[in-house]
């Protein structure tokens, strides 16, 4: 899921990454809407709000919206900076570090919300900002490592792509095109996963409140550990193969000696 980069990624890699991270984004977006009356997994609407607030002359709101948009942008910036700086040294670390940062942000929001949140406007602004940064990190990572084919925090582009792809699938020659069907599968899975995450969060938020952020973090931990466990498993397999090879070699070396002795 995280070990491969750009063109080396299979549909399966992108599907797993897309489904899990879209589920998280859906959860976070709905939770922030319920708690803070603000969206945190996309910024398209904020550009419209920014323009409206500039026209109205509400400079406080202009400043807040600008800083939120900036933090989403900065999340993407940090994410890709980590990927391109560390990719040559260790791909797994380069791709998992933005997820670790995202987990830190979400845990911070969860813990603060659970124990300290007094619902002041300043707290709301800061927590929304942290979540936008976290979503920027996630979107930057998934887009960066999948060569821009996986974007999981908003569905505007996905819905457009899905409309285009579904219209193409009405023609037989497009239905036989593997690349088109694969893309449709990927986007549709992201779409379903995002909506499922949103429904799960809106249902469980009333029961577990801010602990919903820990659930989102758990899903992200699965993303991290999936490849980590795979790496360890492959290392184990390689070690076992080497041991078997060495054992075979030593028995082969011993055999002629035994023959000579006999």
């Amino acid at each position: 899921m995280l070990r491969k980069y750009s063109q080396h990624r299979s549909l399966n890699d992108n599907l797993k990454l897309g489904v899990l991270t879209a589920f998280v984004a859906g959860m976070i977006n709905v939770s922030s809407l319920i708690i803070f009356f603000s969206f945190t997994s996309n910024v398209t609407g904020y550009y419209a709000i920014l323009a409206a607030e500039i026209v109205k002359g509400n400079f406080y709101q202009v400043l807040i919206v600008l800083s939120w948009i900036f933090l989403f942008f900065f999340g993407g910036f940090v994410s890709n900076l980590i990927v391109i700086s560390l990719n040559n040294k260790n791909t797994y670390i380069a791709h998992s570090l933005p997820i670790v940062l995202e987990i830190v942000c979400l845990v911070a929001v969860g813990v603060y919300g659970d124990f300290f949140y007094e619902e002041t406007l300043r707290e709301t602004e800061i927590m929304v900002a942290i979540m936008l940064f976290a979503m920027g990190l996630q979107n930057g990572l998934t887009a960066s490592i999948s060569n821009f084919s996986v974007k999981t925090t908003h569905l505007t582009g996905a819905t457009t792509d899905l409309g285009i792809l579904f219209s193409m699938l009405t023609k037989k020659h497009f239905r036989n095109n593997r690349a088109i069907t694969d893309k449709a599968k990927l986007i549709f899975s992201i779409f379903i996963s995002y909506v499922t995450g949103a429904i799960v969060a809106s249902y469980f938020f009333g029961i577990i409140r801010f602990k919903i952020f820990y659930v989102a973090c758990l899903v992200l931990v699965v993303v991290l550990l999936y490849d980590f466990s795979k790496i360890r498993y492959f290392k184990f397999l390689i070690r076992r193969q080497r041991q078997e090879r060495d054992a075979n070699r030593s028995t082969k070396e011993k055999e002629p000696q035994l023959i000579k002795n006999n």
Binding site: F36, S38, E119
Partner: peptide, 21 residues
């Protein structure tokens, strides 16, 4: 309480259950 970017006024009852926004 004010929510969002200061553009949502939430009014809660004595038990802090939201009543109107």
């Amino acid at each position: 309480r004010l929510k969002g970017k200061g553009d949502m006024l939430v009014i809660k009852d004595e038990n802090k259950v939201p009543l109107e926004h």
